[in-house]
Write a protein that binds this DNA or RNA. Structure first.
Length: 945
RNA sequence: ACCGAAAUGGCGGAAUGGUAGACGCGCUGGACUCAAAAUCCAGUAUGGUUAAACAUGUGAGGGUUCGAGUCCCUCUUUCGGUACCA
């Protein structure tokens, strides 16, 4: 009789729940291990088989560590604020609170089916006021701190205010983008509003002008995601950049620490590189160029001040504040047109298109600081307003983008670095020419000298520039954390008192878009104006607010007095292993590191980094089956994939099909039969009169012969509703059981690789679990394992497996450990092993992978204690020792023979005896042996001339 | 365009610079069965052969090495990210 997974899984799920076997105490007597999953956004679609991949891996680690004696924190929660719930509410009227609760309930149910050992009593939900109270609290701490550049840490803004009172900006070491200067008297003379505005230059949470994607037709701000090809995805309306006052976080003040502390992390080099490149530290000079006929100066940053004599034009971003005044009357129309064109383009469009170079002359000129030449000022979209100062000096001789631009607009190109023919124009090898006082210097020396001169002439200074920007922290949305601040009549910002928090998001009966770019909170009239003359902030915080510190709340989730108690923060400290998708490689991970460091400066967290080790699981993709449609055909004509080569690429379109309706899907012979074509037409009634064409002829559904088939095209891609290829874990578990599902997910391939899901392959793992069960139980569930003492061979098989599985878990190589379990079971069955001793060790070894069946077997074997609380097996080398070894014998690196000899045979004997083997001799006739390479215990290679 | 990753049989994949294709799916043949399912046994990279020998083979092209799927260079394709999807 086979394993009844439905019954057994329910039994143990209930048992574990009742006995709280997953409960994790803050038990400081045991060593801690914190393994964390990136918590999901609870989407309406529920989990598909791709989501749990990382959760299962972390679950195996967590169970393994627990069996090794650690106190393991392995929690789960929800990143529950977000745009989709709000969009859903606007479209359907279902309030985000309701849809989010429903979605979370469904996620919990699905996660529990998989047998993940989460301690749900520690659940963290970002939209829970008891949680976001502390998100708001951290925000206010950011608001009330500045970054001190000598102490290199965040300090209370009150200290800075005292400094301003005493000395103004004299000897003030506060991080800021602006270089405003004032005396103590000037500070004292400032009005409250002016003081507030000044302090905004230093606060770690501050307000500034930011740009949003404004869609007039929809009356709302759009996420980048909601824009396709420059127009709104919904409705195809025009989108433009609009400036608005926005909250921002001064992450740039932490740029150096975020960069240097990467070195201490056990993250993959590729991940660290992505973070390094995202921070993008570059050193150079900040310079001010005089503008002809203006008091103002154009501020630019360059990494190549050595090429200052190669400047032939300046370029400013279309959003640059000087655009208006630099534009001369003659250029006015052209500039206006150009600015309008660029405002409809995304940053991605602007930097990604190499072919079309666009720009427009302002009509104004800068003055070269050293030779007094006139330098035309141009506007182009390849300069981004958010990066650097939004303006550059263009050196077309030594920058490819500047060169392309110069060629297009016939601007002069001056070579100022002597280079050999082959070197790239941007290369820093060579000496400076055509450059007055820099002539003859190698580039690196010229950079130093030019900065020195720039400083001496007071036209600039040395500067480290970061690509990292202070990202926008405001969203014109309802479903997010409200800002715990209010504004007085002057518009000055005041933080709320701690005892008034959380500032609860007001309930709106109906979510509708706001007016004039405001969030839907504009409709919460009473809430928005708490007392006469005061108004609340109507924007809410972005998704990354709640996710930047949630890992700390798990340590002590019920604390009403602090974000987490000192004791819990001291005990759990940081995350030992963090598993999640690469899509969070920079965004989430950078902000979480930033907040963690800030909290460290405040003395709250005990480590400088939140995530010691990071692993990115790959995406599980779906199989997409498409039918091929000839574009613009009338009536619509579908062709067999085998005929597709007769048509040019741009004449055909791929229409995704429900995978289940395709015969032999994911093979070269995938096709729709007549039944499948019926199904397709039923789901897409527009195509009811379409023609289906294959080698055997062309038909409509009405005259189609019975055996007609049309080939479909298989590809691998996202698992999504759109492609009708979503596989739900519930269905798989229902049919095969959670243990099989877990092991199959792991068996698919390396955790970090992306790979397609195909449920067909699961029968291999399912067969394994059945075989495994039958090793313990005969007919009628009777135990067949006996007290026989294990044989040497059985022990060798078992311990080989123990060794492999332990090292695989350490390396997160779960696909190979599943293989070794299969090999072990196959071999033990071949030996007809019944030894209870061997089998119960194997059962413990398998427990983290297959928690249900192992728990059931453990009980049937007469154990009282849960298998998951027993010790994890370790191997003994003594069972693995063999006195023979099989050498592959190669001739010139190509294997020709296998040779089994005593392990102790010395190298000299191996070398002489190998040549006597008949299988080898035939290769040696008439040739000279150059040398013999012997790697003891591994291989032999005979090198011939 | 930029940053990062990947590419191995029909499919998912295995392989400290040392026997390419473990393990599993699929397929083929066989056993059991009235039959099917389930289960079990055998085979399965390609070419070649009754079988073997042998030759070829890890996206493409070069290189380093006694020996390269693995290291280096160039390229192609696919995937993730590019700051308001999460």
């Amino acid at each position: 009789m086979d394993f009844n997974h439905k019954e057994v899984e329910k039994k143990w799920r209930d048992y574990w729940f009742e006995h709280e076997t997953n409960h994790v105490p803050n038990d400081i007597s045991k060593p801690k291990f914190y393994v964390l999953d990136m918590f999901p956004y609870p989407s309406g679609a529920g989990l598909h088989v791709g989501h749990p991949l990382g959760y299962i891996a972390s679950d195996i680690i967590a169970r393994h560590k627990r069996m090794q004696g650690y106190n393991v924190l392995h929690p789960m929660g929800f990143d529950a604020f977000g745009l989709p719930a709000e969009q859903y509410a606007i479209q359907t009227g279902v309030h985000p609170e309701v849809s989010t609760q429903n979605n979370m309930a469904r996620y919990r149910e699905q996660l529990n089916l998989i047998g993940l050992n989460y301690d749900w009593s520690r659940e963290v939900i970002t939209c829970d006021p008891q949680y976001y109270k502390w998100t708001q609290w951290i925000f206010l701490k950011l608001f009330s701190h500045y970054y001190n550049t000598t102490e290199n840490k965040a300090k209370p803004i009150e200290e800075l205010i005292q400094h301003f009172k005493k000395a103004g900006t004299e000897a003030c070491y506060a991080f800021s983008d602006s270089d405003i200067a004032f005396t103590s008297q000037e500070w004292k003379n400032k009005s409250a509003k002016e003081k507030d505005e000044t302090l905004m230059n230093y606060r770690l949470a501050y307000r500034k002008q930011g740009f949003v994607n404004w869609c007039e037709a929809l009356g709302t701000v759009l996420a980048n995601d909601e824009i396709k090809d420059g127009v709104s995805e919904r409705g195809g309306h025009p989108v433009e950049k609009k400036a608005m006052m926005q909250w921002a976080l001064r992450i740039t003040s932490y740029a150096d620490r975020l960069l240097s502390d990467l070195d201490q992390l056990a993250w993959s080099d590729s991940m660290k590189n992505m973070q390094r490149n995202w921070i993008g530290k570059s050193s150079g000079a900040q310079m001010f160029f005089d503008i002809e006929g203006s008091e103002k100066k154009l501020e630019i940053f360059t990494t190549r001040p050595d090429t200052i004599f190669g400047v032939s034009f300046m370029v400013i971003a279309p959003e640059h504040e000087f655009v208006k005044e630099l534009t001369t009357p003659e250029q006015k129309i052209l500039v206006a047109e150009y600015v309008e064109y660029t405002s409809s383009r995304s940053d991605l469009d602007r930097i990604s298109e190499k072919k079309s170079i666009t720009g427009c002359f302002t009509g104004s000129y800068c003055i070269h600081p050293f030779n007094g030449n006139k330098i035309p000022i141009w506007i182009s979209e390849y300069v981004l307003i958010d990066y650097g100062t939004g303006a550059i000096m263009a050196v077309p001789g030594h920058d490819t983008r500047d060169r392309d631009f110069a060629k297009k607009f016939n601007l002069s190109i001056t070579q100022v670095v002597q280079q050999d023919e082959e070197s790239e124009i941007e290369s820093k090898s060579g000496v400076i020419i055509n450059s007055d006082f820099l002539n003859g210097l190698p580039v690196h020396e010229a950079i130093e000298k030019s900065i020195h001169e720039i400083k001496t002439k007071s036209i600039g200074f040395r500067k480290n520039q970061f690509r990292l920007r202070d990202a926008n922290f405001s969203r014109q949305r309802y479903w997010g954390e409200p800002f715990p601040v209010y504004y007085d009549q002057e518009g000055t910002c005041h933080p709320m008192k701690e005892d008034q928090m959380p500032l609860i998001l007001p309930h709106l009966e109906k979510i509708t878009v706001g007016t004039e770019g405001k969030s839907p909170l504009v409709h919460a009239k009473e809430w928005a104006n708490p007392s006469s003359g005061t108004t609340r902030e109507l924007d809410t915080m972005p998704g990354y607010a709640g996710s930047s510190w949630y890992f700390l709340r798990y340590m002590n989730p019920d604390n009403h007095l602090e974000l987490a108690s000192k004791e819990s923060l001291h005990y759990w400290q940081d995350v030992d292993l963090y598993i999640g998708g690469t899509e969070h490689a920079v965004g989430h991970l950078m902000y979480a590191r930033f907040w963690h460091k800030f909290l460290y400066d405040l003395g709250i967290t005990t480590t400088v980094e939140p995530f010691k080790k990071l692993v990115n699981q790959g995406m599980i993709q779906g199989i997409i089956e498409n039918i091929i449609l000839i574009k613009d055909s009338s009536p619509s004509t579908f062709i067999s994939a085998s005929l597709a080569n007769d048509y040019p690429e741009d004449k055909i379109a791929h229409i995704p099909l429900f995978t289940g309706s395709v015969k032999n899907y994911n093979t070269a012979d995938s096709h729709l039969d007549k039944e499948g074509i019926h199904y397709f037409i039923n789901s897409k009634p527009d195509f009811v009169n379409s023609i289906f064409k294959s080698e055997s002829g062309e038909y409509t559904i009405n005259n189609m012969p019975e055996g007609f088939t049309i080939k479909t095209k298989s590809e691998v891609g996202k698992m999504s509703k759109r492609y009708h290829n979503v596989v739900n874990p519930d269905d798989v578990i229902n049919e095969y059981g959670a243990d099989v599902f877990r092991m199959y997910e792991m068996f698919l391939g390396p955790l970090e690789d992306s790979k397609p899901w195909d449920t067909k392959g699961i029968t291999g793992v399912s067969g394994f679990i059945k075989k495994y069960y039958r090793m313990f139980f005969g007919e009628n569930q009777t135990i067949i394992a006996d007290e026989s003492s294990p044989t040497k061979e059985e022990l060798k098989i078992l311990h080989t497996c123990i060794k492999k599985v332990n090292s695989d878990i350490e390396n997160l190589s779960f696909n190979t450990s599943v293989s070794s379990f299969m090999i072990c079971v196959n071999e033990l069955r071949r030996l007809n092993c019944k030894s209870k001793e061997v089998l119960s060790i194997l059962n413990r070894l398998l427990a983290p992978f297959a928690p249900f069946i192992t728990e059931e077997i453990n009980e049937k074997l007469g154990n009282k204690e849960s298998v998951h609380h027993q010790a994890y097996p370790t191997h003994s080398e003594e069972y693995l020792i063999s006195d023979e070894v099989t050498y592959p014998v190669s001739i010139n690196g190509k294997k020709r023979h296998e040779w089994t000899v005593s392990k102790s045979k010395p190298q000299s004997e191996l070398e002489s005896e190998v040549l006597q083997l008949t299988e080898i001799q035939k290769w040696l006739e008439g040739v000279t042996i150059k040398k013999i390479i012997v790697v003891q215990g591994r291989m032999i290679n005979i090198v011939l001339t």
